[in-house]
Design a protein around this nucleic acid. Sequence first.
DNA 1: TGCAAAACAGGAACGGTTATTGATCGAGGA
DNA 2: TCCTCGATCAATAACCGTTCCTGTTTTGCA
Lengths: 150, 150
Amino acid sequence: MIEDLGRAMIEALEEDIREKFRRSGYTLTSQRRAVLDALEEAGGHPSTEDVYLIVKQKNPRVALGTVYQALSVLEEIGVITSKHWAESPTRYDLNVRPHLDIRCTRCSQVSEVPGVELGNLESQIRQNTPYEVQSTTLVVEGLCPNCQKG
Amino acid sequence: MIEDLGRAMIEALEEDIREKFRRSGYTLTSQRRAVLDALEEAGGHPSTEDVYLIVKQKNPRVALGTVYQALSVLEEIGVITSKHWAESPTRYDLNVRPHLDIRCTRCSQVSEVPGVELGNLESQIRQNTPYEVQSTTLVVEGLCPNCQKG
DNA sequence: TGCAAAACAGGAACGGTTATTGATCGAGGA
DNA sequence: TCCTCGATCAATAACCGTTCCTGTTTTGCA
């Protein structure tokens, strides 16, 4: 039952991804597929380097530049989201659902912050600026429980 | 009247800065002073390079590395805040009051978004994470009115 | 199956940032 | 006032994440 639900969700996500590629005109190549798989496998919020290492395990011929380019395409068509932290490489996340992440300034671990209501923040912003808003990201940093001890 | 108010605010800010240096143990050197002045003069949200160029006009001997280090100290003691945008160098801002900025993804211009109520977002976050929250920054990007035409 | 366009691999180059090193400054004590 | 010692600075090399470039391979399409 739960497994079926999981599979259904993955199916829906799959279809969504194919649709986004179709609309954009980009092709869903095996390398881009591998980058997506690596993002899923990595879980958390992998850096480009992390993704590259996972992809490389399965296909050692894939170049780092290709991973950069694939991530950029995936972000452009709205499949993934990038986040830019201080003193840390860019990290990526599948666009499964809107959520809030916090990063530890000491060990760089990223965790999700549950139960925060962003509410109508984005619509408020749209109302108060003449800009055409493309993205709003909340960047939260702090010390994780482990690093608080040290 | 208004000028007096402005001067009073600057005085208060000055005292706050001196206090923060005192508490931290760092010294408020002429170079750090110059970096602060440059931040004020630049207005907007200058990059390290912008600050460096302004500082250099008055004191050509100051090195870029010194500006980096000064900005890092100023941020550490809470006088300024850094913001990290995609594909763009770090930009800095004096901690005058909490506010929200938006950056144009085409021309990199940064403007303030008025009238957005962040409300109890930070306290919500603190309640929902075991992390010791150090900073929360809302990063908003879009197209400025000028670039929408192009 | 053949052709044009897109994507890729590999590696060099770039740009923002940090690290290093020796010189200089400046607060506090003799 | 002069000295001392730690903090800060200037100058520059090194670092690292990212982008760019070139020739090759793959893909979509006729």
